[in-house]
Simulated scan of single mutants.
Amino acid sequence: MNDELTPEALVPSESATDVTGSEHDPTVMVWSTSSGDSTLLHVMQIDPTGIAWLLDIKKPKVLEELVGRINAQPDEATAIIAAESKGTFLPRAELSRVTYTEGLQQLTIIDQAGKKQKITEGNEGEHRQIFEAVRHHLGGTAGEEEADAWSVMQGPLLGLVLTAAIGGFMIFLSTEADPSREFSGRRSGMKKLLNWLGYTIGPTWMSIIVGGIFLVIFASMMHSLIKRPLREFLAFRPV
């Protein structure tokens, strides 16, 4: 992403992340998430009429133009966001629950039909700000409950799968490693490095390392299952 085009620079107004103003002033959140070399942008508006969002925007120019239109027509911001091909608007009358689990960094919006929308995690506390904005603008009955087992297990299970896949590959490489092997073609440098790493560590120690990582993730998951994090929620009755 262009360094000059940051989510902070695209926030439509000074009150974009402020949930303490007038209840009629909308809260607009703009944030980014990174995965490897790719960066995704997200925008959400919360006001007394409901919640509108557009997630996983790949092109900064798209968000820049969207925010420009919101700035030009702030009263139409919800309609502008919802009009995008992947934009969504959930009116308050159709909102059932909004849940937030701080320890797991999970924020979910649930409509009256039971459909769930998981909101992409940010790095600057956006989930908390969104949850508080919903509380401020839309109210709801606040409460707390233990997170369910699946919510607790999702992250660790992914870690276990990746550890098993990558670990198994590394064990295989260490078994097949040969210091006299010659490499050529594309990525020969990477192949040479992996071959050297596998030969240096060896299959026995590689298995111990992979097994240790697997056990640490598994133990962490079991601890979280036993001592469940609290999930905050806002419940809404049909209007």
Rank of each mutant, 00 (worst) to 15 (best):
A82E: 10
P60Q: 06
V210K: 02
A72C: 04
M221F: 00
E146Q: 13
G185I: 14
K192A: 09
L41I: 02
A79W: 03
A83S: 10
G167C: 03
A9C: 05
E145S: 15
M1H: 03
N2A: 08
P229R: 10
L5G: 00
E124K: 05
Q105C: 08
T88Y: 04
A113Q: 15
A133F: 10
S151Y: 04
K191F: 12
N195A: 00
V216F: 06
A77S: 14
I217F: 06
P48N: 10
E232F: 13
M221P: 01
D37A: 10
L104H: 11
L5K: 04
S38K: 02
T175Y: 13
V239L: 13
W196M: 14
P60M: 07
P91Q: 01
K115H: 03
L230R: 15
I209N: 07
Q117S: 08
R92M: 05
D178I: 04
F131I: 00
V210R: 05
V28G: 09
V152L: 01
P91L: 01
S180P: 05
E126D: 11
L138A: 03
V216L: 10
H136A: 10
L138W: 02
E232A: 15
L162I: 14
G189K: 14
T175G: 15
H24C: 07
E176K: 14
L158A: 14
S207Y: 05
D18A: 07
G139K: 12
K118A: 02
A52K: 12
K59N: 12
T99A: 05
E232K: 13
S207F: 08
G125D: 00
S151Q: 08
E145Q: 15
T204W: 10
I166H: 06
I46F: 01
L197N: 06
E94N: 05
E124D: 02
G140K: 14
D148V: 13
P203S: 10
T204P: 04
M153L: 13
E102S: 13
I109D: 03
H136Y: 03
E126L: 03
T6N: 00
L107K: 11
V28H: 06
D47N: 11
E144W: 11
S96R: 13
L215A: 03
R135L: 01
